[in-house]
Design a protein around this nucleic acid. Structure first.
Ligand SMILES: NC(=O)c1ccc[n+]([C@@H]2O[C@H](COP(=O)([O-])OP(=O)(O)OC[C@H]3O[C@@H](n4cnc5c(N)ncnc54)[C@H](O)[C@@H]3O)[C@@H](O)[C@H]2O)c1
Ligand SMILES: NC(=O)c1ccc[n+]([C@@H]2O[C@H](COP(=O)([O-])OP(=O)(O)OC[C@H]3O[C@@H](n4cnc5c(N)ncnc54)[C@H](O)[C@@H]3O)[C@@H](O)[C@H]2O)c1
Lengths: 220, 220
DNA sequence: CGGGACTTGTGAAACCATTCACAATCCAAC
DNA sequence: GTTGGATTGTGAATGGTTTCACAAGTCCCG
């Protein structure tokens, strides 16, 4: 299989979300132009993105909504459910635990860890908070770790997560994480987004214009 | 001024964060290679990023930490404080309100809005929640709006935010937002990151390798 | 004061992603 | 059937970003 950019994968997620909505609304067929319009991209981009994975449309007609939905779910690995551990039962963690959409998309938070002895053992959003010290053993069978601890603790937690053989990490700490090359990391960095807005605000005055893409997650 | 990519701006934020840390640790001078290593990029990339905005280093020596810090703050528009409104006093909103780092970086949340009559008028994290109906008038003097309402309500809220002449939006709803071209929007989409991890997990089995960049915020 | 070690700033080259443009295909209608 | 209108899939062209490579500048030490 050829190499596919993260941009493409991110757009496939966006397409899938739209398709799910349209399916619920009873739409059965959709052309690349309409899909593109609703997702903020171009028809050519939609077709190129899909072409990396096969051919899903019918010339002259467009795409079958249920078929394309299934195809995208397959490509993205969403035909199975994923076991997720949350590390750090703080403010962000609470929001994530309460958020039902992840579950709806196939991500089950099945374990929560915290270092604070006052929290360990208490029930929280339906799960018992486990001791941070038990990470190595308790992460057996976990597919994805969400790291929601202070930045200063993040690398240490990640090292242990990696040692426990977890190969995907969603990181909320605003810090660079070093991981071996077989581990995928995505970082959600809100401060960086705010600073991007700050830049846009001061530069609209100076007359700067439309800007293009951004870097992101690392692997390795 | 030439056009600078969002990738570059995002990296400048990352550099600034590192510099702030190093300054606190008493480091006074830093070469592009070391900065790159600590930020997960290349020395050439660091120098190219900076070169869009001027020349900040000394050949043979590297960069002065305090000087480069000030330069980056200037470039990113962080020499002033920004007035931020939070719209949607839910789970995510609570995490954001409690998060002190934004304030430390120059972003002050000075108003909170919610549509739920049970919440309006109550004090919440030190601010009184205002009626959603008052948005248009109460957004006077706001620089940035954080939209943390359900996806179904987001476009409606955004239209009113734009009508109130706010020109920068940080969006947490997993939905495409239409805004006029002079308004900057950045979306934080965690579901999309999780799906990216799902893709990485199913494709490491299939032997896919390192992937490159991703799209993001739109303007216009 | 000159040589050596080091580092920046920057054109040019390489790489990657997006857009263009069109032949191939499909459906419907007659 | 055959025609017309629509839409896909994809090489080629374009546009943008990252990496390379090196001349120019700085510092230190003898
Ligand atoms: N709250 C926000 O809006 C926000 C926004 C952007 C980024 N972040 C980042 O997200 C992370 C979490 O933020 P938060 O607001 O939820 O913080 P928080 O302080 O509310 O929660 C952090 C939790 O992590 C636990 N913890 C600390 N060290 C640990 C360890 N080694 N192992 C396990 N648990 C540990 C603490 O006991 C605490 O419960 C931080 O890195 C923060 O910078 C938060
Ligand atoms: N909680 C998470 O971890 C999480 C993760 C990813 C994305 N999100 C997204 O963030 C957004 C907020 O999520 P949440 O978990 O905080 O939801 P929530 O239900 O806890 O909060 C939403 C709040 O918005 C208010 N609201 C609804 N319509 C409004 C309107 N028109 N004007 C003003 N306020 C209005 C509601 O009264 C509620 O208080 C959603 O779009 C969600 O999809 C949340």
């Amino acid at each position: 299989m050829k190499k596919v950019s993260e941009s493409t994968i991110a757009r496939l997620s966006v397409y899938l979300r739209l398709l799910t909505e349209l399916a619920a609304a009873g739409v059965t067929t959709l052309a690349s132009g309409e899909l593109a319009r609703r997702c903020g991209t171009s028809a050519a981009q939609v077709r190129k993105d899909l072409s990396f994975f096969g051919t899903f449309g019918k010339r002259g007609l467009g795409y079958s909504v249920p078929e394309l939905t299934e195809a995208l779910r397959g490509i993205l690995g969403l035909e199975r459910r994923w076991r997720v551990a949350l590390i750090g039962a703080g403010k962000i963690g609470a929001a994530l635990m309460a958020y039902q959409d992840f579950r709806r998309q196939g991500f089950d938070i099945v374990a929560v860890f915290d270092a604070d002895p006052a929290r360990v053992g208490t029930e929280w959003q339906g799960l018992v908070i486990q001791r941070d010290a038990d990470l190595e053993t308790s992460l057996q069978g976990i597919d994805i770790a969400i790291v929601a601890v202070p930045a200063s603790a993040a690398q240490g937690v990640v090292n242990r997560v990696v040692a426990a053989d977890v190969r995907a990490i969603l990181n909320f700490a605003p810090t660079k994480l070093d991981v071996p090359e077989h581990v995928a990391v995505k970082t959600v960095n809100m401060a960086l987004e705010l600073e991007g807005l700050s830049y846009a605000l001061v530069n609209e005055a100076r007359g700067a214009r439309r800007v293009t893409s951004r870097p992101a997650a690392s692997r390795g």
